[in-house]
Design a protein around this nucleic acid. Sequence first.
DNA 1: GGCCAGGACACCA
DNA 2: TGGTGTCATGGC
Length: 221
Amino acid sequence: MREKLLQLYDSLYAEYGPQNWWPAETPFEVIIGAILVQSTAWKNVDHAIKNLKTAELLTPERLCECPQDTLEALIRPSGYYRVKTKKIQAFMEHLRINYRNSLDALLAKDQPTLREELLSIYGIGEETADSILLYAARKPIFVVDAYTHRLFTRLGWAERIYHYGKLQKIFMDALPMDADLFNEYHALIVRHGKATCTKTPKCSVCTLSQQCPYPYLVRTS
DNA sequence: GGCCAGGACACCA
DNA sequence: TGGTGTCATGGC
């Protein structure tokens, strides 16, 4: 599996180049973005992030004092704005009560402890927790998402049922514990998932499988 | 005008 | 454990 995964990585990297993730200026921005992007296109999240920046609310101290209706209005472009407001407020509450708003203190905890702690917060599931671990805390953990599952099922490397832990284990067991590698790999999978494959012959990623992972994206004309 | 996007949670059988 | 409904906006 190690060779297949490295071959896939090399193909993706050759196809798309470095992705320089996460698209954020601070670890706190990574966390807010990770919540806002749940089942949402990043362009919509970008609007919400810009609104928060313009309002100068993208710090723990400022955001924890933001009224609920104000926060709802600012993140509205990202969709699901009511539930996402509750999720952000749940995280802010945890940070304020347990760390007096010190994000550094939270992110400094060891990986297994921090992961369990993040998962205990309302609105933070496995993907969001791992995104925070990898992109905000720089811990070596692989982030799995819908793109990963779709690509892997089409390559014949995963079963139809989406099982986060099983998919993550495939990467974590086979690859070196390298945060930079995990960072780039996940970003490249997302980049490929968004791509429209128009190449003839098929691109180097698609040709890893006998069947193109994105057959419906191939334009016949 | 319809489809879908970088999930999580509640509830049900 | 697996399946389904809910949450919602904006780009294509």
